[in-house]
Structures are given as C-alpha cells and as structure tokens.
Simulated assay, not measured.
Amino acid sequence: MDQLQQLPPGNAPGLPYNSLQTGTVIAFAVTYGICSFFLLLRYIQAVFLVKKFEPDLFILTLSYGAALVYFITMVKLMHHGWGRHLVELNMTDLVEFNKALLPNTLTYLITPGVTKMAILVVLFRINPSIPYRICVCAIGVAILAYTVVLTSITGGPCSPLKEGTLTCLMNVALAHAVLNIVSDLAVAFVPIPTILSLQLSAKQKLTVTCILGLGSGVVVCSIARLPYVRQMAHDDDTTYTEAILGVWSIVEVNLGIICGAAMRLKPLLTRWLPQLGLFSSRTRSNGKSLGSSSMGLRADPRPVQRNYQLHSVQKGSAGPPSTGDNGRIHIYREFDVTTTEHDARSTGPSDSDSIEKVPTRV
C-alpha cells in the first residue's frame, strides 16, 4: 500500500495501459480511420472516374504508411515506459526505451514533410503564374532540406543510442517544431491570394473554407506541440511528457493526410453529389479563366442567344433566277439558335462550330 501511494497520481500499475496511453490509441484510431476513408475515396475516384493515379495520391499513400509505422513504434515504446512516469521504470526499461525511440523519432521527422509535399503538388497546379509556382517550389525545397538535415543529425551524432545526446535531441526536436510551424503556415497561406482573386459562389467558398480549415487544424497541432517540446529540455519526467507530445503529433500527421486527400475529391463530389453544386459556377481571375483547377473550381457553360429573322426571297426580288429554276419561288427560313460555350475538354462542337443560318428550300 505504501508503494502504491508513492507512485505519481494518474497511474494504474495493474493495467496494461494507463489513461494517457489509452487516449493515444483512441486518438490514432479515430484520426487514422478518417484518413483511411478519405484515401479510399481518392482510390475509388482514381480507378472508376478519372482513370489515372495522380502524383499526389502516390505521395499521400507513402505518408499514410509512414503514419502507421509511427504509431507501431509508439506502441512498442509503450511497452518500455512511454506514457508512464519515470519513477515507475527501471534501468532495463530505459535502455529498451532509448532503442525504440530512434525509429519513432525518425519516422515522425519524415512523415509531416512527405504529407506537405503531396499538398504542394496540388497547389502547384492551381495557378500557372510563374512567381506563384516559384514560391511553391521554394517552399518544397525548404521542407525537403530541413527534413533531410534533421533526420541525418538524429540518426547520426544525436542518436539516442549514444550516451550524452539528450541535449542534442532536444535541440533537434525544438528546431523541427519551429520549422514545422513555419512550413505549415507557408503551405496554408500560399494559395490564399489565388483563391481570393476568384469569383466563387457561396457553396464554393464554403468548400474552400473547409479545406483551409483542415489545414489550419494542422497548424494548431504544430503550435500546441511546441510548449511540450520546450518543457522536455527541463523536465525530469520525459517519458510522460513525450507521450503528451506524441498525441498532438498523431493528430497533426493524420489531419495533414486528410487535408491532402480532400483537396482532390472534386470529380467524385460532382459525380455522386451533384445536387450540392459545390463546383458549378464559373470562376475567373481578373477576367481570365484559370482553366483546369486542381482544387476543382470549374466553370458552368453560359448560353449565348443570337436572333435571326424569317424572310422569303421571291422571283425577281433578288435578281434574275438561276438557270433551271423554271419560275419557282425559293423560300428561306432562318431560326433563333442558342449556342453554348463548351469546356475545353468537351468533345462536342464548340461555339465557333454552331450553325447560324439554317436554310430550307421549299
């Protein structure tokens, strides 16, 4: 009884998982389940509708697999004290904990960067402007650079398998947290000027707002992690604090995948939910159509009315009859014709192919 009273509050020594560890499993199950649903929709769209696998779908699949690996390494850490207070653990637990910490840390350093690359692939296509595309590419290069550098440092000189690397690991974690927040903000805000320049309907604005809201959720998770990263540098109960940090990391990673998958679901929505009209109005930027938008901001055809008169041409009223007319009267009837502007991808006749004069000879 005395030993149980000495344990920090919130622990249940007789149970396989305490409340924090159980909450971590639940957080992953819920968010990863939503990820699976959205990614499944993307594959259904790729196989049955668009008939092709787009580059961002491949990248998102890699990120989806990495998120699962990240959780598996986290479960392994739970068996060696992750999510429990340090006073509960013995030296053997701590040694095994450090061995399992390396793959867990490396996986997390890589996964958010891969997800943001998938999102940038989509954002690159929504605006053909050269300055805009240079900006998107610059963000991608920066994310790739800091991910490679921090991963190399963690797997090399700052490896938890080496002694005396705790301070180095804390510096890497803090640097990654700050760079992660900056890159999340950059990815979230880079398309906003383009979106604001579009003339969108209320439903389209709601759709874009929801997608940007998911992106903002990723930023919130990144910011929420930062205080715990800073706390670990001066915290003696690192095994417990790291678990709180891990919950935010799980939600952040999975929200990013959900956001990346949702950005390209326009063909599926317009096919299965046409009554919503989410992508049905014409969108223009400064009077010019943006063409095929990767976020699904397409245009409706607008009818063009042309008026024609009905008249007849009798013999003698329009010059001498041609040879072989035999005194007949020729009547030409012309009708009102409504033509429709077609999308560039349409296989039907364009406006220039419409027949403006339809004569019939009686």
Rank of each mutant, 00 (worst) to 15 (best):
L89H: 09
T209A: 15
W248G: 09
V122H: 00
Q45A: 08
L62V: 11
I181Q: 02
L179T: 01
N286E: 13
D56H: 11
A27P: 03
D325K: 06
Q275C: 14
R42G: 05
G140C: 02
L200C: 04
R230L: 12
M232T: 09
S159M: 02
V304W: 07
L226E: 06
G260N: 05
S354C: 02
L60T: 10
N326P: 03
S19F: 15
F189P: 05
E96Q: 14
S281I: 08
L86M: 15
P321I: 10
P321D: 06
L255D: 04
T147P: 00
I223S: 12
D56F: 01
S36G: 09
K357G: 11
L226F: 15
G213V: 07
Q231S: 10
I211V: 08
C137G: 00
P157F: 07
A177W: 03
V87Y: 08
D2I: 09
V95P: 03
L4R: 12
L77F: 02
I258L: 14
A27V: 09
K266N: 13
Y32S: 14
I355R: 13
L200N: 00
P301Q: 06
T115D: 07
Y64N: 11
A243H: 12
T107N: 04
G23M: 15
V337W: 00
I126R: 00
S285G: 07
Y228K: 11
R133E: 02
F189Q: 06
S183P: 01
S352N: 05
I34Q: 01
Q5F: 08
K51H: 12
F28W: 14
G140T: 03
F97R: 04
V30K: 05
L106Q: 11
H311W: 09
L206D: 05
G324N: 12
S292T: 03
L179G: 00
P349C: 10
P359H: 06
F53M: 08
G140W: 03
L226Y: 15
R282T: 13
S129E: 02
S36I: 05
T283W: 00
V25F: 13
G14I: 06
R125C: 07
V141M: 07
K99G: 00
L206C: 06
K162Q: 01
R284A: 12
G324K: 13
F279D: 14
I26G: 04
T338H: 02
G256P: 10
L265H: 11
L101Y: 15
I355V: 13
T323P: 12
T239G: 08
T347K: 09
